[in-house]
Simulated assay, not measured.
Amino acid sequence: MKKSYRNAIDRLSDEDEGNIEILFTSTSEFDEKQIHKKIKNVKQSKFTEVIIHYERDIKKAIIEIQQTLKPAKEHKFQIDESKNALNYESDYYKGIVVNISAQSLKAAFEKFESEGLFNMNIQRYIKSKTVDDAIIESMRKNSDDFWFMNNGITIACEHFRLDGDNVKVYDFSIVNGGQTTSLIAKNLESYKDDFYLMCKIIEKIEKT
């Protein structure tokens, strides 16, 4: 951290004084007053303001962002067999695990990529060439075994409805599997090249 700070100072011109921002995260407790004291004692300090965010502040910010983001509206995912679903329910959630068509997932991406499809996914899509190449190779060379090689995706929604050989989701977002979704959408070319992948769909139960 000291090395990064010194390098940043060396790159600044006189006009840019004060434009240094350092983000530091830690799960440990620390003395905020001591941190401010040490920073003030740094010779030729170019800091104009120091703001410290604790874990509770970050969690609060995440919740606030999620509340302002709108989910995707409505989509129908094709599944492998009529009513083929594993159901589970608790006091607060209910959900199903189904095998959805890659083509129907691609259709959701093309329709909602910039309209809420990933809005509840904090990590979104973090690129990794090694993982990307493995997913693409599995799609192109061994799509029949894609279900075994991939963890699938997870969708959170306001409501879902199983209807024969498809499942309809309303006010939904992909909360896990953004990388898989993006790669399928961008590399699945022909409608004949379809396959199935596992999908967990979760709905929160409103208590009355």
Rank of each mutant, 00 (worst) to 15 (best):
K3V: 15
S4V: 12
S4K: 13
S4T: 12
Y5Q: 02
R6I: 15
A8M: 10
A8H: 07
I9W: 03
I9A: 06
I9T: 12
D10Q: 12
R11F: 07
S13V: 01
D14M: 08
D14S: 15
E15C: 07
E15F: 11
E17R: 15
I20R: 03
I20H: 06
E21C: 15
I22L: 15
I22H: 06
I22Q: 07
I22P: 02
I22G: 02
F24E: 01
T25E: 13
S26H: 01
E29D: 12
F30V: 10
F30A: 03
D31I: 00
E32Y: 05
Q34D: 08
I39A: 07
I39R: 09
K40R: 12
V42N: 14
V42D: 14
K43E: 06
S45W: 05
F47T: 00
V50T: 13
I52T: 14
Y54R: 15
I58Q: 10
I58E: 12
K59T: 02
K59L: 09
K59W: 04
A61M: 11
I63V: 13
I65L: 14
Q66R: 13
Q67F: 04
T68E: 15
T68P: 05
A72P: 11
K73W: 00
K76D: 12
Q78A: 02
Q78D: 06
I79M: 00
I79D: 00
I79Y: 00
D80S: 10
N84I: 06
L86A: 14
L86V: 14
N87W: 11
N87G: 07
Y92G: 09
Y92L: 02
Y93I: 15
K94G: 10
I96M: 08
V97Y: 03
N99T: 10
S101W: 03
A102W: 00
Q103T: 03
S104D: 04
L105W: 11
K106L: 12
A107M: 10
A108F: 03
F112G: 02
E115A: 11
G116P: 09
L117V: 01
M120V: 01
N121V: 01
R124P: 04
Y125H: 14
I126W: 11
K127L: 04
S128K: 13
K129Q: 08
D132Y: 01
D133G: 00
I135V: 09
E137H: 09
E137Y: 04
M139Y: 02
M139C: 04
M139I: 04
K141W: 07
N142F: 04
S143W: 03
D145I: 11
F146C: 07
F146Q: 10
W147T: 02
W147F: 14
N151E: 08
I153V: 14
I153S: 10
I153N: 09
I153A: 08
T154N: 02
F160C: 03
F160T: 03
R161H: 06
R161Q: 08
L162H: 01
D163R: 04
V169G: 00
V169S: 05
Y170T: 13
Y170V: 12
F172H: 04
S173W: 03
N176S: 07
G177Y: 05
T181G: 03
L183N: 02
I184R: 00
E189T: 13
E189K: 08
D193S: 02
D193K: 06
F195S: 06
F195M: 05
F195I: 12
L197T: 06
L197P: 07
M198P: 06
I201C: 06
I202T: 04
E203C: 11
I205Y: 06
K207Q: 15
K207Y: 09
K207E: 14
K207V: 11
